[in-house]
């Protein structure tokens, strides 16, 4: 059967922003390099040494009131995602399973990754785990965490003996 990747972008070029295949390859490469420096050894769990199939890419955004983390987890069953906040670390883990339709078929091309995933993110600010929410939509997990109220500072009295 023929379904062959086609790279001649000229044939489908859009009038507004013509882009060459080289530009597109650069974008893909940039992304790969970004990920490499972010996690040069993949998602290797520090405590168990267990290898994970992949680490989802994330965005971390901070406002004065909250920290928002978004992770790309397309095709992952939301009920199989675990979101955990421990101290200043947010841990996203779970697994991406092949659907029934994908099992045991004649596979021509297999680029998508399946299996367990793990991503640990050090949060830029201390957050209140009790005021965190996690939503899944269109393959994107969004975790919103309220920052702890800014500590006003406290003067410690020196006890003289």
């Amino acid at each position: 059967m023929s379904l062959i990747p086609w790279r001649n972008r000229g044939a489908i070029s859009r009038s507004d922003q013509p882009r060459s295949i080289i530009d597109v390859m650069h974008d893909d490469l940039d992304r790969m390099i970004d990920r490499f420096f972010e996690q040069p050894f993949g998602a290797l769990s520090a405590d168990t040494g267990e290898r994970f199939a992949f680490a989802p890419p994330v965005d971390v955004e901070e406002t004065d009131k909250e920290v928002t983390v978004r992770a790309e987890v397309p095709g992952v069953d939301p009920s199989r995602i675990e979101v955990k906040i421990t101290g200043d670390t947010l841990t996203l883990s779970g697994s991406k399973e092949e659907t029934k339709e994908e099992k045991g078929k004649n596979v021509h091309r297999s680029e998508r990754r399946f299996g367990s995933f793990l991503r640990r993110i050090t949060l830029p600010e201390s957050v209140d785990p009790d005021k965190a929410t996690a939503d899944f939509s269109s393959g994107v997990l969004t975790v919103r965490m309220a920052k702890r109220p800014e500590s006003t500072g406290r003067t410690i009295k020196v006890n003289a003996k």
């Binding site: 992304r31 972010e38 890419p57 994330v58 965005d59 901070e62 406002t63 790309e72 830029p124």
Partner: peptide, 13 residues
Amino acid sequence: TGANAQWRLREYG
């Protein structure tokens, strides 16, 4: 993004 939001990490395209 919220007002005055600052990016700490941007990987997701």
